[in-house]
């Protein structure tokens, strides 16, 4: 999932204080799971903002809506009949949702309510860690299901490097060396022969190096 973290409320106050009618728009998907932008977080932020502005003598209307997703036309269309009631929207979706919202409602200022961080997993409640960088050329089949692109600080393809000590990365002693993890898992799978195969130079054009990307699937287009 896309992992996001809450923005400081002071930052959001600064963004919206010039407006009078503000919609706090949540998303029921990834940001709900990582407890940054779901229905509950929308409620907390809206309540805090209402109290702040009442306390500061500012007449503000702050409403709450949480959509199923903000990255699909059909869900964002659900607010078309209500959007004109608001001067601005604080979207608690990831950066994708914020942008799609902005594209769809051109005249409406949209502010991000969360910082979008990475593609990751919930290791335990309150701890999310990165697992994928969406490089566009998945090599997990050859690395025992552990991604050196997202989990190695250097993103190296033939590791480990000299900075790996006792299974930890030189960047941070709490950070596992991805290549140590790969070697350990290849060993347990009995596939150390794979480790002998060298990766050739990776085609980074499918990563960000090639600019903004798109996936076109004519077979599913109508």
């Amino acid at each position: 999932m896309i992992v996001a973290d809450r923005k400081p409320i002071e930052e959001i106050i600064q963004q919206v204080e010039a407006h009078r009618n503000v919609l706090i728009l949540g998303c029921n998907e990834c940001v709900t799971v990582c407890e940054a932008g779901g229905k509950k977080e929308v409620g907390i932020l809206a309540s805090a903002l209402r109290m702040y502005f009442i306390n500061n003598g500012k007449d503000m209307r702050i409403d709450e809506i949480t959509l199923e997703r903000q990255c699909d036309h059909e869900y964002l269309e659900e607010i078309r009949d209500r959007i004109d009631r608001y001067d601005a929207v604080v979207s608690l979706a990831c950066g994708v949702g914020v942008q799609f919202m902005a594209e769809k409602y051109l005249s409406k200022p949209v502010y991000p309510g969360v910082n979008t961080c990475f593609l990751g997993v919930t290791e335990k409640r309150g701890l999310w860690t990165e697992r994928c960088q969406a490089c566009g050329q998945c090599i997990l089949a050859n690395t025992a299901g552990i991604c050196p692109i997202s989990r190695c600080a250097k993103r190296i393809l033939n590791g480990p490097c000299g900075g790996s000590t006792k299974g930890k990365c030189e960047v941070n002693k709490d950070l596992d060396c991805a290549w140590q993890l790969i070697v350990d898992r290849l060993k347990s799978l009995g596939r150390m022969d794979d480790y002998e195969k060298l990766f050739s130079i990776k085609d980074w054009s499918t990563d960000r190096a090639g600019g903004p990307r798109k996936v076109v699937r004519e077979d599913v287009q109508i």
């Binding site: 907390i44 805090a48 903002l49 109290m51 702040y52 306390n55």
Partner: peptide, 8 residues
């Protein structure tokens, strides 16, 4: 923390 931030 939140109540401190909003001035309550």
């Amino acid at each position: 923390k939140l109540l401190d931030t909003v001035g309550v």
